[in-house]
Structures are given as structure tokens and as C-alpha cells.
Design a protein around this nucleic acid. Structure first.
Lengths: 145, 145
DNA sequence: CATTATTGTTGTAAACAGCAACAAATGTCT
DNA sequence: AGACATTTGTTGCTGTTTACAACAATAATG
């Protein structure tokens, strides 16, 4: 039998929001990755695709700012999505520096499947937290941003 | 004047707990790092020190499991703390494989100062969220683990 | 026009996470 | 007791994420 070992005391960590936020974040992240593994999509990629779909030809700077990721990182992230034929960088009509991001037809199709799996992931979380607790957390977190 | 640009639509991201958890986590992490920058301590290091203080001579495996970090990563993290004279790896009396982790006198002193700065960071968050909202989030997140 | 700011991009470094392997020590089972 | 499996701390390697600095092209501003 395994050696019995009671859980350690967290000390003042018990009063730090950051500690628990991180624990939940890790769990959510891992479950999301697992849930979308068959499509080989990670959370950041999913977020970018969703935001591109929900807006008409946003620029890279727009997307980066809205999602709170660095412009430099978004560049390489989009490179990957473009290589896979999910998005296109169209020339912007009014600003020759910037790109208007759009989903390809294939991108739309894939995103549709991603959303199904993402919803399943969200259901996992609901099962783990209980529906009202999840709604409560969601409402509280929304107020933050 | 800056080009006026209204915020992009988040689309279905609005219904994903993970998205908002990440946003909060990033904010908390950055504010924590900034708050403890003068002591050159990062969140993971702080958590380890707190847990060592709150328990009597825990093993590395204990701490790693409790904090959800990998044993391998904890090794290098402890190397750094030991080099700075904050902790010691005492020989465990009952198991010659494992170490009993303890704070040095200096570790105790430094941790005391860290706690003050960490409390200030927590106050930042409270100011940002409001006291009752923070309490609500903390309670909800605690239930998760 | 001259200057300043923004956009996309590349490069680089650090932190962080995951996996595999290993020797030493302990536990388990017959 | 001895054979076998497991645990502990450790090292190495591979990506991923984050941060920061620089740059050319273009746009905005005085």
C-alpha cells in the first residue's frame, strides 16, 4: 500500500487569490488542450480564431491588444495558422502597413468543430464546479476585465 | 490624437471561463512580480517558501505535489533559493533518499518582508475588484481545489 | 516638409512545463 | 532472505510562453 501522507499546510497562500487562480488556470488549460487535441489547437490559437471570426478584418495590432498578447507573439502564432490554411492576411485597403485578418473557408469549418469540443470542455468544468458556482465565477471574472 | 478604435468583439470567448481566468491570472502574476521585485522573488518561489515555513521539514516530493509543480522543476527552484541562503536541505532522519526542507534564519527574515509586499499586492487586487467581489472569487476558487 | 508614432516583423533571452532517464534508497511479496 | 517494484532527488532535453529590443515601411502630426 502507498505510504499515507496527509496534505501539507498552505499557510498564508490560503489568502492569496493568485494562488487559486493559477490552480484553476492550470486545470482549465490542460483540460482544454486535451479536449482539442484531435484538432491540434491550443487555447491561444482558439482565441485568435474566434476573435477574427467575430470581427470583420481586424488588424494584428487590434487582435493582440484585445487578447492581451504581444504583437510579436501574434506574428508567429498567425504564421502557424496561415501555414495550416486556417487564416489569411489580406491587404488592408486603407492602411498599407496593416493586414486585415480573415478566416479561410477551411478556417470557418475547422472553427466550427473547435467550438463543439470547446463546449464539451466547458461542460467538464461545469461538472467539476457545479452550474451555479461556474456562473458565479464567470460573472465575477468578467467584471475584472 | 490617437486613432480611435473601439474594442473588438470577443465572440464566444465571452462564455469561456478559461479566457477570463487567464486574464486575471496574467494581471495578478504581473502585479505580484512588480510588488516583490525589490526582493527579487517570483510567485513560484514565494509559494515554496511559504509552504516550507508552514510545515515542519517537508520533503521535496511533498512540496511539489502540494503546489502542483514538477519534482524536476522544484529541484532547480530550490537550488536557487539555497544559493541565496534562504533554505536548507537537511538530511531526513527516517528516509535517506529524501531531504527535509527548512528555512534558514535569513530565509525567515526575508519571508517576513515578502509577506508584507504580498499583502500590499493583495490590496491592489482588492482595490481593483472591490472587497466583496474579491471575497466571492476567493471563496469560489477555493472550492475548486 | 520634418518629425513622431504605428504596424508588422525578426532576433534573443528568460522562465516554465513536460518527458525520459538514472542511481540510491525504500517498500513489497513470496 | 532475496527478487522485484516503487519512490526520491537529480540531470538532460524539448518545446512553449513571455518579455524586450530593434528595424523598415508606412501613416499621422506639427
Amino acid at each position: 500500500m502507498r505510504k499515507r501522507r496527509q496534505s501539507l499546510d498552505l499557510g498564508v497562500l490560503e489568502d492569496h487569490v493568485g494562488y487559486f487562480v493559477r490552480r484553476l488556470q492550470v486545470w482549465v488549460f490542460q483540460d482544454f488542450v486535451r479536449s482539442l487535441a484531435s484538432l491540434d489547437i491550443r487555447p491561444a490559437q482558439y482565441a485568435v480564431l474566434v476573435v477574427i471570426e467575430a470581427n470583420s478584418g481586424p488588424s494584428q495590432a487590434d487582435v493582440a491588444e484585445r487578447l492581451g498578447i504581444e504583437r510579436a507573439r501574434l506574428v508567429r502564432l498567425l504564421d502557424g495558422l496561415q501555414r495550416r490554411g486556417l487564416i489569411r492576411r489580406r491587404a488592408s485597403p486603407r492602411d498599407r502597413r496593416s493586414h486585415a485578418l480573415i478566416l479561410t473557408r477551411r478556417g470557418h469549418g475547422e472553427l466550427k468543430r473547435m467550438k463543439l469540443l470547446a463546449a464539451a470542455h466547458e461542460a467538464n468544468l461545469t461538472r467539476r464546479l457545479g452550474p451555479e458556482e461556474r456562473a458565479s465565477i464567470l460573472a465575477s471574472l468578467r467584471k475584472f476585465t
